[in-house]
Amino acid sequence: MMRGLWDRETVALFLLLALMPLALTWLWFGGTQAALQLVLALVVSGLWHMIFMLARAQPPSFAGAITALAVAMLAPEDLGLIRLILGISFGTVMGELVFGGWGRNVVNPATVTLAFLGFGFPTAPWPDFVLPVAWGAIPAAAIGAVTGVMSARLLTGAGLVTLLAMALGADLDRVLPAAGIVLVLLVADPVASASTALGRWLNGALYAALVVMFTLEWQGAAPLQAAVSAALLASLAAPVLDEAAIALWLARRKGRHGRT
């Protein structure tokens, strides 16, 4: 039998490839500090993948590296080693591995880590990004959409709602870089986002709408904090959006054929 390309690990590798522009610019501007943080996240995440492989015969996935990258980039600063290790362990294990590994999880493990750290240690400051790093999100989204590992519908949906909000006069300049980075790192994850066509449009639109709402109404929130919270809520809502899209599809089909 012939075999095609798009098994789980290929998708993970293409996702990693898509995120490279973002990761490399971030490493370039972040220097040694960023590199060390990334190595730490990689080691902790890899360790848990190994443990689950040995204990539960669960094959490790390159998706662990995506999680590590997202955590290293987005985690609050000045947490100290122990808290960071605790956060990554919690996110990787409770967000992904206990469900059976990447592909069966409900929420992106990096989102779980960041929500855990953000809500657990609210005094820690959220990192800021220099503008060139944020520009890196655009080629990342482009590569992801062209290879099909990120949903073009989701990305477009988010973009359209953002444009609409800006056209209506919302001042989003401060939050846009962080929101863009979170969009490609966390929201566009094919597993944790919606999987139907309509659901993906709604998923992207919902994320952008939440970002806009948090920016305008949430006093004192850091841009990244608003974006991560929006990502968490949007990915929790993804199954509902899928359900709605499928229900609509079934209703249309029933109207056309009288049966499903």
């Binding site: 798009w6 789980r8 015969a57 094959p59 069966r104 590992v149 094919p190 597993v191 999987s195 499928i246």
Partner: peptide, 27 residues
């Protein structure tokens, strides 16, 4: 690479196109 349970399928554009968009492939 081999697991006790089957490796999950990741919903990508390739998956959607492989069923010609006829039905929600992931579901």
């Amino acid at each position: 690479t081999r697991s006790s349970t089957q490796v999950p399928v990741i919903p990508t554009a390739a998956l959607e196109q492989s069923v010609g968009g006829a039905f929600p492939a992931a579901a």
